[in-house]
């Protein structure tokens, strides 16, 4: 073997991550596996479309841009983020490891001259990208279905008003959510044989987030995400407020956390043996 410089080695590993990401994305979007998840994400589009059946004279009076922004904010936090991003990440992250072992296909990557950490990174990036694409599509589609209520005013709202800024922020939160939830759920996939139950517990935990005292809020993914929302819906009377973290902390923290989970997953994978016959 010729001596390989460190930089060349890292360049090679990066190419390998990308190659794995590409293969994983191809596997992911082939076949019918994601149809259910996609429909789950697109449900708000159908619900929001109903608004177009409201008689015009009422609609014109009621659905001001501010009102629509409120409605969207509620739909986003309650459903698109909490349900959509969560379950999409769950579906995709659990496939990172478990499914491959169950389907006896994990060894294929390991037959290549590649570090197992690199395999895990490629798979994780692919899962995040796939969920970001699915959830992002739902976010954009439901946004336009709702704001098309503004009719001719849509263009103005988007470009002279706050519209495009809000949408970009929602998309940013969605992507961050895919990374954050993806990392937590990938961690669960590492820690438990059957990660579905812990995942549901997490789902419940995040749903009662607003009731939690501030120091517990720090343990939830949503807490970091909600503070980034352009428009925070009003919270109920029982809610306990906590100072939201800064954008910097949220973004850097989320990626750092994902990085840590990935290091753990890579470490676990590097010690794993390929023994399929028993679990």
């Amino acid at each position: 073997m010729t001596a390989v410089t460190d930089r060349a080695a890292w360049g090679l590993r990066l190419r390998q991550v990308l190659a794995i990401t590409r293969l994983e994305l191809r596997k992911c979007f082939r076949g019918r596996r994601l149809i259910g998840i996609t429909l789950l994400n697109l449900a708000p589009v159908a619900i929001l479309a109903l608004i177009h059946f409201v008689p015009e004279e009422i609609a014109a009076r009621k659905f001001t841009p501010t009102r629509l922004a409120e409605m969207y904010a509620v739909m986003f936090t309650i459903y698109l983020l909490r349900v959509g991003v969560f379950f999409t990440s769950a579906a995709l992250s659990i496939q990172l490891f478990r499914t491959e072992v169950l389907e006896k296909t994990f060894h294929y990557y390991l037959l290549a001259p590649v570090r197992r950490e690199v395999v895990m990174a490629g798979k994780f990036v692919a899962a995040c990208m796939a969920s970001a694409v699915i959830c992002g599509t739902a976010v954009i589609a439901s946004y336009f279905v709702l704001f098309s209520m503004l009719g001719d005013g849509l263009g103005k709202y988007m470009f002279s008003g706050p519209g495009s800024g809000h949408l970009v922020a929602y998309l940013g939160v969605t992507v961050l959510g895919c990374v954050g939830y993806g990392a937590v759920l990938a961690l669960f996939d590492q820690l438990w044989k059957n990660p579905i139950i812990p995942a549901l517990v997490l789902f419940g935990w995040e749903s009662v987030l607003f009731l939690l005292p501030p120091f517990l809020k720090l343990t939830s993914v949503l807490f970091y995400l909600e503070s980034l929302l352009p428009y925070r819906p009003p919270v109920g009377p029982l809610a306990i407020l906590a100072d939201p973290p800064s954008t910097m902390v949220s973004v850097v923290g989320m990626f750092a956390f994902a990085g840590l989970v990935l290091i753990l997953a890579g470490w676990r994978a590097s010690r794993m043996e390929i023994v399929y016959s028993t679990d």
């Binding site: 293969l23 191809r26 596997k27 082939r30 076949g31 389907e103 006896k104 296909t105 060894h107 294929y108 037959l111 399929y276």
Partner: peptide, 11 residues
Amino acid sequence: CTQYDAFPRGL
């Protein structure tokens, strides 16, 4: 070339 007769899906 392993003995395992399973393949990544869809390829």
